[in-house]
Structure formats: C-alpha cells, structure tokens
Simulated scan of single mutants.
Amino acid sequence: MPAMLGQNQYGKAESRVVRITRNGAVHHIKDLNVSVALSGDLTATHLTGSNADVLTTDATKNTVFAFAKEHGIASAEQFGMRLARHFVTSQEAITTARIRIEEYVWERIPPSDTREARHSFVRANRETRTAQITYDGERWQIISGLTGLTVLNSTDSEFHGYVKDRYTTLQETRDRILATEVNARWRHGATDDAGVAGADWDDVYARARDCLLQAFAETYSYSLQQTLYAMGTRVVDRCPGIDEIRLSLPNKHHFLVDLEPFGLKNDNEVYFVADRPYGLIEATVLREGAEAGLAVL
C-alpha cells in the first residue's frame, strides 16, 4: 500500500532572546529560549518539494526578535500567545502554532554601598520557568511550569512497610532526608480569548510555585508519592485557574554514612548523596471534573 503523510510540523527551535527594558537608569531583563512549531496544510512541500506555503524558519526566528522589540516581554505566556496568534492569523496554510518557552531568571547584584543596584545582575541559582502555548485560531492551550526546583526536608520523612522480596536490601527508616528536584507543568483551564485575556501570568506562576513549596514543607511524608499528591492538590485547590498539574520528582537519595569503623556514631548527621540511579516518582493531579490534557513529561 502507498505511504501516507502523518502529523507534521516545522519551525525554529531555541531562539535565545534577551530583552532589556530601560526605565531611566533602572534596567529590567527578560531572558527567554523560544521554540516555534507550526502545522497545517503543508502536504505539498513534503510530497513535491513545493515551498509555496512555507514561512521560513528563519522568518519565525526573526519574528521572535522583532516582537521582543515591538511589544516587549511582559511574561513568557503573554509573549508566546502574541507569537502564536500572529503565525496562525498571518499565514493561510498554518492552522496551529505551538510556542515553547524557557525563562532564565536574573537577579540584581546587591550594591556594596548606598547606591541602588540598577543594571548589574546575577543569574539566579533557581528553577527554570517554562511555558507552552498552542493556538488553532479559536482555542488556546496554555501550559506553564518549572524545572529544576531543588528542595529538601532534613526530617519529617519516613519510609517503611514496603514490599520486600529476595532482592530487597533497603532498610526501613523512621527519619530520613527527603530531597527532590521539582519538575512541574500545569494546564490553565481557560481556552478562549475571553478567558485568557488580561490574565496575570506572573502572579499565577508565583502562587503555583509557592503552593508547591509550602506543601512540600508542611507535609509529614511517608513516601514521595504522598508528598507529590499533596503538592499537586495544593496547587489545584488554591489556584482556581489551574485544572491539572503533572509532577515529575526524582528522589535525590541521601544515605547515612557508616562511621562505626572509625568508632563514631552517626546520629542522622552525616550523609552521602547518590546522584544515580534514582527513584523517579511521577503523577498527574486533576481538578474534579476536568479532563486530562497533559502529555507525559
């Protein structure tokens, strides 16, 4: 039987754009990594090589830079929405645009005297903010998130009562370090123009991040699965605009060092960290009645 063209898309990946906003002597910085993917009626270019409906990937890259200048970058979500709408409405052959964005945070360097730190920054040693915006001309799907948010509880975590077979060597513990690197994506419930217009994406991000941190800190944990569910539930319960969150939590194992050969007692004080292999706990938490819409991380 003859071959058939399936789902396809094209675009420019990882256009790194830095936008400086100068309010007099005080500067502000936005640092994004933007990937554009376009899909639609592009059969001809695959089957015959005709480029009549192809907007070049170089043009999509240039659009990212031009929009950063012309419109500024209020937030990753807002910038991605502006780009997605532009590509779908300006190109007849394009029916869907997906914009993926990573944002890198910079903080002001504290001044050494009484002068305000106005234009000196240090790359923050913190998580990377993410956004994915998809638009088909009528409906939006906006997925925000973060990667690399490293957290640790030095107590209030136990792990015992698990299945034991002939290969089990892990000892039960009633007091352990619980550490993980939070990777999360959350789907906003609003999908039409009225629902997404005027949304304060920075505020929603800050609230979701705070919920994740607060739930991690406040949950007495008997398993990382339990902690994950508490974190996801906190976001869904306290962020009304979020319908679904998917969390991927690698367990950053901390093991007690055996100090007995040195005549020393290790009273939950000295640990070594094993970076691999590691347990990986993943799950999705949904608002009641919401349909799942997040792909696996």
Rank of each mutant, 00 (worst) to 15 (best):
V54T: 13
F67I: 09
V64W: 05
S50H: 08
D41Q: 05
L38Y: 00
L38W: 01
T48D: 04
A68N: 12
G40R: 03
D41A: 03
D58C: 11
L38S: 01
D58I: 09
L42P: 10
A52H: 14
V64S: 04
D53Y: 01
D53E: 08
T57Q: 06
G49W: 07
L55W: 03
L55D: 04
N62C: 02
V54S: 14
N51F: 02
T60D: 02
A59D: 14
N51M: 12
T57M: 05
A37S: 05
N62G: 05
L55H: 04
T45R: 08
G49E: 05
T48L: 08
D53H: 05
A59I: 12
N51V: 10
N62K: 02
T43A: 14
L42M: 09
S39C: 01
T57S: 08
L47R: 11
D53F: 00
K61N: 10
N33I: 15
T63S: 11
A52R: 10
L42V: 06
A44S: 12
S35Y: 15
L55T: 06
V34Y: 00
A44V: 07
L42D: 06
S50M: 12
T45Y: 04
S50D: 02
K61Y: 12
T56S: 14
L47S: 07
D58G: 10
S35I: 13
D53A: 03
V54I: 13
S50A: 10
D58N: 09
A44N: 06
T45P: 00
V64Y: 03
S39N: 08
T60H: 02
N51P: 09
T63F: 08
A66F: 14
A68V: 12
V36M: 00
K61T: 06
T45M: 12
T60C: 08
A44Q: 09
V36Q: 02
A66C: 15
V64N: 00
D58Q: 09
S35D: 15
A66K: 15
T48M: 04
N62I: 04
T60E: 01
A44K: 11
D53Q: 06
S50I: 07
L42H: 02
V64A: 06
D53T: 00
T48H: 00
S39I: 01
L47F: 06
D53C: 01
